[in-house]
Amino acid sequence: MSGQGMSGQDQLWEVFVRSRRGLSHTHAGSLHAPDAEMALRNARDLYTRRQEGVSIWVVPSSAVTASSPDEKDPFFEPSADKPYRHPTFYEVPEGVKNL
């Protein structure tokens, strides 16, 4: 594993870029930097060389908590048996509009 500690070591950062105003930040990739300020500068040079962004977030990779792929079925199960959460679940008589 390449996870580095918080103390003066080269850290791994996750980069999120907002491509234009009105859109949310999306994950662009990761990079190495010793601190947040450098991470932002590196992210600008690495991920927005062609005006790909108007705003950047950098987050230490070690701060991300992820769901485990092992338990993906039980973890996401609660939503699997609830098709009634989707509009397509409902039958609408022909000719009824704006519903």
């Binding site: 390449s2 990739g29 990761s30 690495l46």
Partner: peptide
């Protein structure tokens, strides 16, 4: 200069991708 800088960027994208497999840069 822009092209050579891009190539540096390509290297960095790829090193990051390799690191996800459990090796360090």
């Amino acid at each position: 200069m822009a092209k050579v800088q891009d190539e540096a960027g390509h290297g960095l994208y790829l090193y990051s991708a390799a690191e996800t497999l459990g090796v360090s840069r």
